[in-house]
Amino acid sequence: MPGGGPEMDDYMETLKDEEDALWENVECNRHMLSRYINPAKLTPYLRQCKVIDEQDEDEVLNAPMLPSKINRAGRLLDILHTKGQRGYVVFLESLEFYYPELYKLVTGKEPTRRFSTIVVEEGHEGLTHFLMNEVIKLQQQMKAKDLQRCELLARLRQLEDEKKQMTLTRVELLTFQERYYKMKEERDSYNDELVKVKDDNYNLAMRYAQLSEEKNMAVMRSRDLQLEIDQLKHRLNKMEEECKLERNQSLKLKNDIENRPKKEQVLELERENEMLKTKNQELQSIIQAGKRSLPDSDKAILDILEHDRKEALEDRQELVNRIYNLQEEARQAEELRDKYLEEKEDLELKCSTLGKDCEMYKHRMNTVMLQLEEVERERDQAFHSRDEAQTQYSQCLIEKDKYRKQIRELEEKNDEMRIEMVRREACIVNLESKLRRLSKDSNNLDQSLPRNLPVTIISQDFGDASPRTNGQEADDSSTSEESPEDSKYFLPYHPPQRRMNLKGIQLQRAKS
């Protein structure tokens, strides 16, 4: 015994090295194993092979420090690593049964499904019991997946119906949107047309105001020219009257000059006056001389005659003075006559000038009245044309509004008919989907599995289990394997941990 101590140590070291070499393959693929292994699927088989106990299973599945599946799978690998070579062998058998691809990844061999460990530990009855539990578990999982698949199909059909409904609603909204954009385009076109009409109206108003201003300026210029013409006519008439007055005065002077006595007659009258003065002096001298030589009687007679002569001279002087006064009065009367005649001529000139001015103003008033009548006639014609244009424009607008209203009513009726057609199509689609759903539900009910399987069917299934373990590994792997896509769409199922009653199965096998 003492001599065998070193050999035992060498043997233990060799086993430990082999164990480390075995687990080295697992550690190399630890990331892939932790990512894809579900500990809840492996722990029943590991407990059946007595590699882990209930406490280890509870620690792996329910520990609060292991929230994710990767953490739980890593903890399970750590626990199996502590179990040595047996933990490695049982772990590979569980991978061979549940995850053939991972088994091939770790060992590089094809899975054979021999279950040597569980046969050694529990015997064939334990293997049968384990396989029966796994089959029931798989059936329950398949039923749950079928239910989930039916629910998802129903949800899918519902979503398809909602999608069709949303599509129809979208078509309806597109119809309304198209109608909205069309009405918006019509409104924009009408606004552009309105702005264009306003611009045209403004341009016409500006043109009309400009023409009116030009016409008023032309009328004012015409009036100024007419006033200048009238003033020139007035000056012409005044000059004609002055010329006529000057002509009359010149004719009067000419007549006075023609009626003036001649120079010879004046000289002859002056000679006669001198001769008479000479004779008068001679007679006076004779009379003076006679007075001195005459007697007293003759002197008395001469005195009487002288007195008579003096009286006659006085009378004559009075007559001469009277004649002079009369001549002066006649001259003054002639001057007054000439003055009055001049005033008369001036008044006649003024009267004729005023008459011509009156005629001029009368003509001017007639011209202004004619212009006013023409302006009123043009204004009435413009008003009439404007009223006709406004009436025609309003009539066109009324007809346009009428046609637009008819078009809008027809478009609304068309839209309502399209919407009604879309709604009826939606109703038809809904009815078809309901009919299809009812038909599929009836087919699913016919094809669904019963909840409680008979014992004979279970025994028959387990009677055929042994050949399947040898020759149909691919079928078992397809039913027991969970793909990543299934984990996305289906909830994980945790079967209840219970042991099955095998009395009925044993009785059935005894009868057979």
Results as ranks from 00 to 15, higher is better:
residue 4 G to F: 10
residue 5 G to H: 15
residue 6 P to Q: 13
residue 6 P to V: 13
residue 6 P to M: 10
residue 7 E to D: 13
residue 7 E to M: 11
residue 8 M to Y: 10
residue 9 D to P: 14
residue 9 D to N: 11
residue 10 D to H: 10
residue 11 Y to I: 11
residue 12 M to L: 12
residue 12 M to W: 08
residue 12 M to P: 09
residue 12 M to R: 11
residue 14 T to L: 09
residue 14 T to S: 11
residue 14 T to P: 12
residue 15 L to C: 11
residue 16 K to G: 09
residue 16 K to E: 11
residue 16 K to A: 11
residue 18 E to H: 12
residue 19 E to C: 10
residue 19 E to A: 12
residue 20 D to V: 12
residue 21 A to C: 08
residue 22 L to F: 12
residue 23 W to V: 08
residue 23 W to M: 08
residue 24 E to R: 07
residue 25 N to D: 10
residue 26 V to C: 07
residue 26 V to D: 05
residue 26 V to K: 06
residue 26 V to I: 09
residue 27 E to I: 03
residue 27 E to P: 01
residue 27 E to F: 03
residue 28 C to W: 03
residue 28 C to F: 02
residue 28 C to A: 07
residue 28 C to I: 06
residue 28 C to Q: 09
residue 28 C to N: 13
residue 29 N to V: 07
residue 29 N to S: 01
residue 29 N to Q: 07
residue 29 N to L: 01
residue 29 N to T: 03
residue 30 R to L: 03
residue 30 R to S: 03
residue 30 R to W: 05
residue 31 H to N: 13
residue 31 H to L: 10
residue 31 H to P: 01
residue 32 M to I: 06
residue 32 M to Y: 10
residue 32 M to L: 09
residue 33 L to G: 00
residue 33 L to S: 00
residue 34 S to N: 02
residue 34 S to I: 05
residue 34 S to A: 10
residue 35 R to D: 00
residue 35 R to I: 05
residue 35 R to W: 06
residue 35 R to C: 04
residue 36 Y to N: 07
residue 37 I to R: 00
residue 37 I to G: 01
residue 37 I to L: 09
residue 39 P to M: 02
residue 39 P to T: 05
residue 39 P to C: 09
residue 39 P to G: 01
residue 40 A to T: 04
residue 41 K to P: 02
residue 42 L to I: 09
residue 42 L to A: 05
residue 42 L to H: 01
residue 42 L to R: 00
residue 43 T to N: 00
residue 44 P to M: 01
residue 44 P to L: 01
residue 45 Y to M: 08
residue 46 L to C: 04
residue 47 R to G: 02
residue 47 R to I: 03
residue 48 Q to M: 04
residue 48 Q to P: 02
residue 48 Q to E: 12
residue 48 Q to K: 03
residue 49 C to S: 15
residue 49 C to A: 15
residue 49 C to K: 15
residue 49 C to P: 01
residue 50 K to G: 12
residue 50 K to E: 08
residue 50 K to D: 06
residue 51 V to A: 12
residue 51 V to C: 05
residue 52 I to A: 00
residue 53 D to W: 03
residue 53 D to G: 03
residue 54 E to I: 14
residue 54 E to W: 03
residue 55 Q to K: 03
residue 56 D to N: 05
residue 57 E to N: 00
residue 57 E to V: 03
residue 57 E to G: 00
residue 57 E to A: 02
residue 57 E to H: 00
residue 57 E to Y: 02
residue 60 V to T: 07
residue 61 L to C: 00
residue 61 L to M: 00
residue 61 L to I: 05
residue 62 N to L: 06
residue 62 N to R: 03
residue 64 P to A: 14
residue 64 P to V: 08
residue 64 P to M: 12
residue 64 P to E: 00
residue 64 P to G: 03
residue 65 M to G: 01
residue 65 M to F: 07
residue 65 M to K: 05
residue 66 L to S: 00
residue 66 L to H: 01
residue 66 L to N: 00
residue 66 L to K: 00
residue 66 L to C: 01
residue 68 S to L: 13
residue 68 S to V: 00
residue 68 S to G: 00
residue 68 S to I: 03
residue 69 K to N: 04
residue 69 K to Y: 02
residue 69 K to L: 03
residue 69 K to W: 00
residue 70 I to W: 04
residue 70 I to D: 00
residue 70 I to V: 14
residue 71 N to L: 05
residue 71 N to M: 10
residue 71 N to I: 08
residue 71 N to W: 00
residue 71 N to S: 13
residue 72 R to N: 01
residue 72 R to V: 01
residue 72 R to F: 00
residue 72 R to M: 00
residue 73 A to D: 00
residue 73 A to I: 03
residue 74 G to D: 06
residue 74 G to V: 06
residue 75 R to M: 05
residue 75 R to K: 06
residue 76 L to T: 01
residue 77 L to N: 01
residue 78 D to R: 02
residue 78 D to V: 02
residue 79 I to L: 06
residue 80 L to D: 03
residue 80 L to N: 00
residue 80 L to S: 02
residue 80 L to T: 02
residue 80 L to K: 01
residue 81 H to D: 02
residue 81 H to S: 07
residue 81 H to R: 10
residue 82 T to M: 08
residue 82 T to D: 06
residue 82 T to C: 11
residue 83 K to Q: 07
residue 83 K to W: 02
residue 84 G to M: 03
residue 85 Q to W: 08
residue 85 Q to H: 14
residue 86 R to V: 12
residue 87 G to S: 05
residue 87 G to F: 01
residue 87 G to D: 03
residue 87 G to K: 01
residue 88 Y to K: 09
residue 88 Y to R: 10
residue 90 V to I: 15
residue 90 V to G: 15
residue 90 V to Y: 11
residue 91 F to C: 00
residue 92 L to V: 15
residue 92 L to S: 14
residue 94 S to H: 00
residue 94 S to R: 05
residue 95 L to S: 00
residue 95 L to A: 02
residue 96 E to Y: 06
residue 96 E to C: 07
residue 96 E to N: 04
residue 97 F to H: 15
residue 98 Y to M: 09
residue 98 Y to Q: 09
residue 98 Y to I: 07
residue 101 E to D: 05
residue 101 E to G: 04
residue 102 L to K: 00
residue 102 L to P: 06
residue 103 Y to A: 08
residue 103 Y to I: 00
residue 104 K to L: 02
residue 105 L to T: 12
residue 105 L to M: 01
residue 105 L to Y: 13
residue 106 V to M: 10
residue 106 V to E: 02
residue 106 V to S: 05
residue 107 T to L: 04
residue 109 K to L: 15
residue 109 K to S: 10
residue 109 K to V: 06
residue 109 K to N: 04
residue 110 E to V: 03
residue 111 P to Y: 06
residue 111 P to Q: 04
residue 111 P to V: 10
residue 112 T to Y: 15
residue 112 T to G: 15
residue 112 T to I: 15
residue 114 R to G: 10
residue 114 R to P: 14
residue 115 F to S: 14
residue 115 F to N: 14
residue 116 S to V: 06
residue 116 S to T: 08
residue 116 S to G: 14
residue 117 T to P: 15
residue 117 T to R: 13
residue 118 I to V: 15
residue 118 I to C: 15
residue 118 I to Q: 10
residue 119 V to M: 15
residue 119 V to S: 15
residue 119 V to A: 14
residue 120 V to M: 06
residue 122 E to W: 07
residue 122 E to K: 08
residue 122 E to L: 04
residue 122 E to F: 04
residue 122 E to G: 09
residue 122 E to P: 14
residue 123 G to C: 15
residue 124 H to D: 15
residue 125 E to T: 11
residue 125 E to N: 11
residue 126 G to C: 14
residue 128 T to I: 11
residue 128 T to C: 04
residue 129 H to L: 13
residue 129 H to P: 13
residue 129 H to N: 03
residue 129 H to D: 06
residue 129 H to V: 12
residue 129 H to G: 09
residue 130 F to W: 15
residue 131 L to S: 05
residue 131 L to R: 06
residue 131 L to T: 07
residue 132 M to F: 15
residue 132 M to S: 07
residue 133 N to T: 07
residue 133 N to H: 15
residue 134 E to C: 06
residue 134 E to G: 14
residue 135 V to R: 14
residue 136 I to R: 12
residue 138 L to Q: 14
residue 138 L to C: 10
residue 138 L to V: 14
residue 138 L to N: 12
residue 139 Q to D: 06
residue 139 Q to M: 10
residue 139 Q to W: 10
residue 139 Q to L: 14
residue 140 Q to S: 14
residue 142 M to P: 08
residue 143 K to G: 08
residue 143 K to D: 08
residue 144 A to K: 10
residue 144 A to C: 09
residue 144 A to N: 08
residue 144 A to T: 12
residue 145 K to T: 11
residue 145 K to H: 09
residue 145 K to C: 09
residue 146 D to R: 09
residue 146 D to C: 11
residue 146 D to N: 13
residue 146 D to K: 07
